[in-house]
Nucleic acid binder design. Structure first.
Lengths: 191, 191
DNA sequence: TGTACATCAGTGAACGCGCGTTCACTGATGTAC
DNA sequence: TGTACATCAGTGAACGCGCGTTCACTGATGTAC
């Protein structure tokens, strides 16, 4: 039966929110529209009242996950002692906690190799998420010089690489070493 | 009809070879057993004379791709002027050529975020590929010290991260900048 | 070396299954008067 | 404010499709004598 406009808008937000969790946890392909809807106690049919396609949901879910991640990093920035903001951001990103919880973590690390084969719209949303990550990196490595920007790109690539590889390996020691080595290497360059 | 033992062994090798190409090009999920077989002019049914499952093929294809990549890097090492071996390896890995051709490139960069959700066997094969990459990195950054190992891990994470992100973005300038920044950052540390 | 038979690589159709998407339907919500 | 009607959020079943895997079959290869 019909729901009020507010209820419908809330449902839509819940679908995007749940999709943002599930896509990060299991990947875009491995999560079906039915998975997302049934996680909310809804049936598949209603999905298409809100979205034109699963792809549109992927686009919005990536944007939502990116916004959550940026907001999380802003919280970390606010709470950390002023001199140690960069270190706090880097340590959080490269933590075993982040490794263990892709569903609430950085969508760039969660989806990077999959997105290489995705549609232009999904790639665009993903690229925006990468830009969000680089803005967070600018808190740890500020400056408008070419060199500062290069160091931010290096830090972002290394951090994403370390988290992704730590998740893909079955060697716990290697996973820890990767995260630790990148944390050390990046923080040496970030006072 | 039945084929000779040599023919059958050759078919098996071709299946693994083609799978190594297709999986890197499109991802493990997006390539079907039928895709691999029909690329060789064969039908699906015969596949199960050679492999117990698609998963077993994925394991062998990752190992094959890793071996190809290590062999390619050995060729680069042999051909480069002795003082510039590290730079040659790094530049090849971080090239637009590598970015444009995942099908013949590093399987670690091609499959990293997908493998996080794969079976233990696939993760084990992938982890071996990561170790292969670290051995290649040891040519550029030799040494048995803890510090040398950490720098290899950092270099590997940054290189994989840069290639993966450069492929996932729709922003060509960002892609080039990522590859360039990591090349610069890593080669500064690698004389 | 020749022959009879077992083996098995590859074919092609079929299997059950889950997918994204569509659709007729329901009944509460929103709107027009 | 009340009423009649249109709208549309969500249901539940159905659609065509491609997937991984199985299987009866074929005929050349391999083996035993």
């Amino acid at each position: 039966m019909r729901r009020s406009r507010e209820d419908a808008a809330a449902t839509r937000r819940q679908i995007v929110h749940e999709a943002a969790r599930l896509f990060r946890a299991r990947g875009l392909d491995a999560v079906s529209v039915a998975d997302v809807m049934s996680a909310l106690g809804l049936t598949v049919g209603g999905f298409y009242r809100h979205f034109a396609s699963k792809e549109q949901l992927a686009v919005e879910a990536i944007a939502e996950a990116s916004a959550q991640t940026v907001a999380h990093h802003e919280t970390v920035t606010r709470r950390a002692p002023k001199r140690a903001v960069g270190a706090a951001l880097i340590e959080g990103y490269l933590s075993l906690q982040h490794r263990a919880h892709p569903e609430s973590g950085c969508p760039v690390a969660a989806l990077c190799s999959e997105v290489a084969h995705a549609s232009p719209d999904v790639k665009r949303a993903f690229t925006q998420a990468v830009r969000g990550l680089l803005e967070v990196a600018a808190v740890a490595i500020p400056g408008e010089t070419k060199r500062a920007r290069e160091r931010r790109l290096l830090a972002a690539a290394a951090m994403v690489g370390a988290v992704v590889l730590s998740r893909a390996t079955d060697d716990e020691a290697l996973a820890r070493d990767l995260l630790g080595a990148v944390r050390k290497g990046i923080t040496e360059a970030v006072p």
